[in-house]
Simulated assay, not measured.
Amino acid sequence: MRRLAVFAVAAALAACATSPLGRKQFILISDDSISQQGVASFQQMQKEMPQSKDARKTQYVRCIADNITAQIPNLREKGQLSVPGAWEVSVFESEDVNAFALPGGKIGVFTGLLKVANTQDQLAAVIGHEVSHVLARHSAERASADIPAQIGGAFASAYGVGQLYGMGVNALFLLPYSRGHESEADLLGLDLMASAGFDPRAAVTLWQNMARASGGQKPPEILSTHPSDETRMHDLNARMKTALDLYVTAKGQGRNPKCG
């Protein structure tokens, strides 16, 4: 009962959390705790995966990442964020078309992504998206959501319906929850890249490239952790006017990245 009382109090306090785009969040994990996990995971990847020896590629990726993250203090001053001031960037030698950002200020880009995100603006869309996951505290939110799901699973197993419960939670809660995070990171990332002086229209072109690269080999959206490419492009276009206003302002203030 004591543990349940502590959980209830923590849950009540977590209800006060709000994402940078104004969405109410349920967060039970502290920023310090999730940042420590992010740093540990990044260091493990650096030990296990080869990093690119191409200095030009590495400088190119870091230039884009530096321009993106330079805009974060502007958001922090508005009281929206609590994130590191310095970000570490690694370029991993891998054919995977992927990138990530982790709590604790860590960014990783796989060289395979550079074949699909083939301009600085397109790569900025990816990095802006990944950094936005950190800014919106999605890792802590997802970990927090797993706690009540695990408790419910324990009760369901005790009554012999654990498998049915797991299928229901995954389809009706966890997958839509994950898609919501991806959509939020798309929109926040669009604003972030535009504020840094990267053309936000390249985000739509990026997802056109992604769709071609996948060859249509993706599960239906309802069964996926990510929105469909079509959904992402629709939502990005719906926010494009706001992003273009930020882009014009950035250009007027002299933010004109030239990363190569």
Rank of each mutant, 00 (worst) to 15 (best):
Lys47Pro: 01
Ala5Ser: 12
Gln25Tyr: 10
Pro227Thr: 06
Gln253Lys: 12
Ser157Ala: 11
Val97Pro: 01
Thr242Phe: 05
Asn237Ile: 11
Ile222Pro: 00
Ala250Glu: 09
Met210Leu: 14
Ala185Gly: 06
Asp32Met: 07
Ala211Val: 00
Gln37Glu: 13
Ala149Tyr: 12
Val91Tyr: 00
Arg76Gly: 00
Asp66Met: 00
Leu246Met: 10
Val126Arg: 00
Ala11Asp: 10
Asp229Gly: 01
Ile147Gly: 03
Ile29Glu: 05
Thr18Lys: 12
Ile34Cys: 10
Asp96Gln: 14
Ile68Arg: 00
Val61Leu: 11
Gly105Leu: 04
Met193Val: 06
Ala203Ile: 13
Ala149Ser: 09
Gly166Tyr: 04
Ala185Ser: 12
Ile29Thr: 13
Ile222Gly: 00
Asp66Lys: 02
Lys57Cys: 01
Val131Leu: 05
Val204Ile: 15
Leu174Arg: 14
Ser52Asp: 08
Lys24Ser: 13
Glu77Asn: 11
Asp186Ile: 04
Gly216Met: 08
Val248Trp: 08
Pro148His: 14
Ala203Trp: 08
Ala14Glu: 08
Ala145Lys: 09
Asp191Phe: 05
Asp96Ala: 14
Ile34Met: 09
Asp146Trp: 07
Asp66Thr: 07
Asn170Tyr: 04
Gly85Thr: 15
Pro84Cys: 02
Ser94Ile: 00
Ala10Ser: 09
Ala143Met: 13
Leu113Trp: 07
Pro148Phe: 11
Asp191Ser: 13
Val134Gln: 04
Tyr159Ser: 13
Lys115Leu: 07
Val248Thr: 10
Leu206Gln: 01
Ser90Gly: 01
Gly166Ser: 13
Leu75Gly: 02
Val248Asp: 11
Val6Ile: 14
Val116Cys: 02
Glu184Met: 09
Phe155Asp: 06
Thr58Gly: 12
Asn237Thr: 13
Thr111Phe: 06
Val39Tyr: 02
Lys47Glu: 13
Val134Leu: 10
Arg23Met: 08
Val126Ala: 01
Gly112Thr: 09
Arg255Phe: 15
Gln208Gly: 06
Ala70Pro: 02
Ser41Gly: 02
Gln25Pro: 09
Ala145Asp: 09
Val116Arg: 00
Asn209Phe: 00
Gln150Trp: 08
Asp54Glu: 14
Ser33Val: 07
Ala136Lys: 11
Glu48His: 05
Val169Trp: 05
Gly128Val: 03
Ala124Glu: 01
Val89Thr: 14
Thr249Ser: 14
Ala99Lys: 01
Lys106Glu: 09
Pro73Leu: 11
Asn74Leu: 12
Phe173Tyr: 14
Asp229Pro: 05
Ala196Gly: 04
Gly112Glu: 04
Arg255Trp: 10
Asp199Leu: 02
Tyr159Thr: 15
Leu190Tyr: 02
Gln37Cys: 01
Ala5Val: 14
Ser35Glu: 10
Leu244Pro: 05
Arg2Thr: 13
Pro84Thr: 02
Thr231Asp: 08
Ala140Trp: 05
Arg62Val: 02
Ala70Met: 05
Pro200Ile: 04
Arg212Ile: 10
Met167Phe: 14
Asn256Lys: 13
Glu184Pro: 08
Ala194Gln: 02
Val97Ile: 15
Pro227Gln: 04
Ser224Tyr: 11
Ile34Val: 15
Arg239Lys: 13
Ala203Tyr: 09
Pro219Tyr: 02
Gly153Met: 10
His129Arg: 15
Asp146Ile: 05
Gly189Lys: 04
Val97Phe: 01
Ala171Lys: 12
Tyr165Gln: 08
Gly260Glu: 11
Thr225Met: 04
Gly254Tyr: 03
His181Pro: 02
